[in-house]
Design a protein around this nucleic acid. Sequence first.
DNA 1: ATTGAAATCCGGCTCTG
DNA 2: CAGAGCCGGATTTCAAT
Lengths: 149, 149
Amino acid sequence: MAIDETDRKLLAELQLDATQSYAALGQVVGMSAGATHERVRKLKAAGVIRRTAVEVDPAAVGQGVLAFVMLDADAWMGDEPTLRALAEIPAVQEAHIIAGPASVLVKVRTATTEDLQTTLRALHKVDGVTSTQTIVVLESCFERPPAVM
Amino acid sequence: MAIDETDRKLLAELQLDATQSYAALGQVVGMSAGATHERVRKLKAAGVIRRTAVEVDPAAVGQGVLAFVMLDADAWMGDEPTLRALAEIPAVQEAHIIAGPASVLVKVRTATTEDLQTTLRALHKVDGVTSTQTIVVLESCFERPPAVM
DNA sequence: ATTGAAATCCGGCTCTG
DNA sequence: CAGAGCCGGATTTCAAT
């Protein structure tokens, strides 16, 4: 889909606050509410907007500990069963196949460091994983939406 | 704030789809639309729900390249000026102070690997940064909302 | 339950290819 | 001439109290 400057502005606004009315959104880009609605509808239909969701404070829901774990493997980990095994660990929020020394990088959130340990044990049990290297986050300085270019 | 089982269900639903009506949400937790509305209002007021935003496909807006960069520093990087310098680099989406060999871990999204290189150059120029170690993501297997516990 | 606002739908207009 | 995009109003649904 072709994204123009108006779409970018809409996306930037909607990443900050998706609750505002189409009339207010229209103000920002200088269009009517109806036309704005149509733009956003198309962005959703095209998959540019994947979904609209609330952003929850992790600490408030028992996820105060954040860590990144690099997984080394003795085989290719990009296959379905392996990824499903990772997805079945609830603490695992993201999984990325990476270039470089390790094979997979996962982002993990838990309530306590003890739960983190439990998660690491679970990661070790995943087929193909030979070792893990954990980076514990002391403080998240900021997490923000992608700058729409 | 105290979060009960009903709140958790609401949060889980709203993380998947924040566009549904309070009537539909109420169905899930077995409550009236009005009562559901009140619950969600309190969750927002308490900061458990930080905001509601659209989730944009990074590749669709010229952010197809994802990398994690670990920054080594010769001084403490947790100060305001340093963090502001990081925040001013648009490609930097997240910054975390970490335990372990490096000081800071940043998540970076760019359109091309060439832009990634530009970003790395910018990171090197940040005060206190002595070296960087980059992990390029070949494929993101999944990125999902935190499992509300 | 009631009020007010906002999303959604529709017909007509304009500009462009 | 055909198509797409935008506007403005009418309708209905939903949020808010």
